[in-house]
């Protein structure tokens, strides 16, 4: 090997290391910064009580409830729809104009900024369908927003299942539906879950799409037709309107911790599932 090649190799290794370290560094810095400012505010009463004085004091319980209600409902709507579409595209149609159109639609949807979804949700769900500012309107909007991600990742996961599984199932007399539900989906589940987790991550942290559709009330919701404020919207308002920077950081910290916790739980569930099935 000549010297230039060795030098080029060493430079490349250095640059790649630097990129990885920098990426990790930025992530750790952001997390540390938020936690550094947010953790001092945290206490049991901060997460178990309702806010007072517009959030200057008191806790953030309604926004935690609102965030999770919206996210769970959005996932409950988008997951069956998205996985169903993915199954349709992969198992029930041959590649052709129809699958190309659906796929193109899903991909275009994925690139639309969330504020556009917010505006659409406001016009369609809130005004036209008369659902008002509510958990339902917000969840429907979020579902539309995360649907492309779920379709895309589910489709890839389903395509990655070896054809031999389908072949065996058909050869044993399984119908297409039995083949999909018993032979294909169990193997595709970890991949599908990844898509659902990505969607969940986007939902939990979403601001623009929900501020238009779920409202920003600080009352504790009692049904899906009630408006809510999410954690993300809450700290946006706290910071934007200068109500309380410490509480904004506290809310952000809870949000970050929730996302991490949810990801860890999902990862753990997935590992358990994989361990059982391979």
């Amino acid at each position: 090997m000549n010297n230039r090649a060795i030098v080029a190799h060493k430079v490349a290794v250095g640059v790649l290391w630097a990129s990885a370290v920098l990426t990790l560094g930025i992530l750790v810095f952001i997390l540390a910064y938020i936690l550094y400012h947010g953790l001092p505010v945290l206490s049991w009463s901060f997460i178990s009580q309702s806010p007072t004085e517009m959030g200057r004091s008191g806790g953030i319980l309604p926004t935690i409830v609102g965030t999770f209600a919206l996210t769970i409902l959005a996932l409950a709507i988008a997951t069956p729809l998205g996985v169903g579409t993915a199954i349709f595209l992969t198992e029930y149609t041959r590649p052709g104009p129809l699958t190309r159109v659906v796929r193109f639609g899903a991909e275009s949807l994925a690139g639309v900024p969330s504020i556009i979804f917010g505006l659409f949700g406001f016009m369609f769900f809130v005004i036209y369908l008369g659902l008002g500012w509510s958990i339902l309107s917000g969840a429907l909007t979020l579902a539309a927003m995360i649907l492309p991600t779920i379709i895309r990742t589910s489709e890839e996961a389903i395509r990655a299942v070896p054809d031999s599984y389908r072949e065996i199932s058909f050869a044993l007399g399984g119908t297409r539906w039995q083949t999909v539900t018993r032979a294909v989906l169990p193997s595709a589940l970890p991949g599908i879950l990844t898509g659902v987790m990505l969607g969940m991550g986007r939902s939990i942290g979403e601001t623009a799409a929900v501020i238009f559709t779920a409202g920003s009330t600080l009352r504790l919701p009692t049904s899906v037709t009630d408006p809510v404020r999410t954690m993300a919207v809450h700290f946006y308002i706290l910071a934007r309107e200068g109500i309380s920077m410490p509480n904004a950081y506290g809310t952000a910290a809870i949000l970050v911790i929730s996302i991490l916790a949810v990801n860890f739980v999902a990862y753990w569930l997935m590992q358990r599932f994989i361990a059982r099935h391979s």
Partner: peptide, 9 residues
Amino acid sequence: FQRPNVFPL
């Protein structure tokens, strides 16, 4: 089939 394909079950 040719390959001894079992389900991952």
